[in-house]
Design a binder for these strands. Structure first.
Lengths: 189, 189
DNA sequence: ACAGTATCTGACCGATCGGTCAGGTACGGT
DNA sequence: ACCGTACCTGACCGATCGGTCAGATACTGT
């Protein structure tokens, strides 16, 4: 059945995200799947193709979110809705996000990486108002990189004691705080 | 002179942090330094030794900060001071921090990685009050991982247009906000 | 002039990498 | 019974990996 192909996708994604794309050999993926390296290359033509298969669903989903957000006016309500969508996206595709956030620069010449970087740029543009200060830009970056780091660390270290709903609520709170267009007063209270 | 050794350290650190430890070959480091691979191995006995040399100053500095913070009572003023110290640490050792934050799990069997993970744990404990909620733990992780990501992205993409002082001020503001022991009300205001 | 040390190099090693290929096995349709 | 297809495998390939080694070059103090 197609269980092997899907298993391979999952295993590869996990290894690529937690150990690094370059550091993960096809042999290791095959071992984890209980197959031979040749079988892995039967299902996916190359290591690059395996990476592409592993991350493209996440890219498609993100593109979807970006399209829907672009079609609506930029009100406070729509921003809140977007953050909720985005948090759900992060929770569901934490491995893929972590992979791109932290290994993006080194994944040149893998075509799917360009698509992803493009989307992140769109994402940044969506939050970039005309008066985008350095602090606002850093808020955006910290929110994105921090959330990706946190979710995978949680995953890697096995300390998933936290209830998913609690994690989700906390993420929404924190991201809202970081991404909210705060008044331009000097500092916090 | 020791310029070669120091150059190699810098080059290796940059490559390890931006492209990944496993993905960076000694050959590439040698090329970037204008030397042969053999010369690199003359200055540093192994790839592991090169990594250790590249990051140990940052580890020593962090240990120093942790020691000084442990010796003082945990007041609001000392927390503010610590955040300032920590931000300076992040700015000066952004590459090393990024390296450990994002490749820590895959750097097993490299002894210096254990030291670093230990310190990060100490760091977490320092912020962990008895009533550490899930949200607080996530705030800590997002602050750490987000800051590391932001600083290296800024570095990698060459968009260092921002004035260092502005970056520093923004970081202090944002980290203070994330790490502040906010009152335990249900949610933000 | 000499010896000593520091620096650097090319040739070489075994291991592992991603990938190819010929062939084996199991199964469903006819 | 036969064929086609899907799935899987071991043997093999060239390239590259980290690392070793013997020796070339150059700079030092004496």
């Amino acid at each position: 059945m197609s269980t092997s192909a899907e298993d391979l996708r999952t295993i590869a994604l996990t290894e690529f995200a937690t150990s690094g794309y370059a550091a993960t050999s096809l042999h290791r993926i095959a071992d984890l799947a209980g197959l031979s390296k040749s079988s892995v290359l039967y299902h996916y033509a190359s290591k690059d193709a395996l990476l592409e298969a592993a991350v493209s669903p996440a890219i498609a989903r993100l593109a979807e979110i970006m399209k829907s957000v672009a079609s609506r006016p930029d009100t406070k309500a729509s921003r809140r809705e977007f953050i909720a969508d985005f948090v759900d996206f992060l929770l569901e595709h934490r491995l893929e996000v972590h992979l791109f956030i932290n290994q993006g620069p080194s994944l040149i010449d893998v075509p799917v990486a360009d698509r992803a970087n493009e989307l992140v740029l769109n994402l940044a543009e969506h939050f970039a108002t005309t008066s985008m200060s350095e602090e606002h830009r850093m808020r955006f970056g910290i929110a994105l990189g921090g959330a990706a780091y946190m979710l995978v660390t949680q995953y890697t270290l096995g300390l998933e004691a936290a209830a998913p709903e609690e994690t989700r609520a906390a993420l929404i709170t924190i991201l809202s705080e970081l991404l909210a267009p705060v008044p331009v007063s000097s500092n916090r209270k």
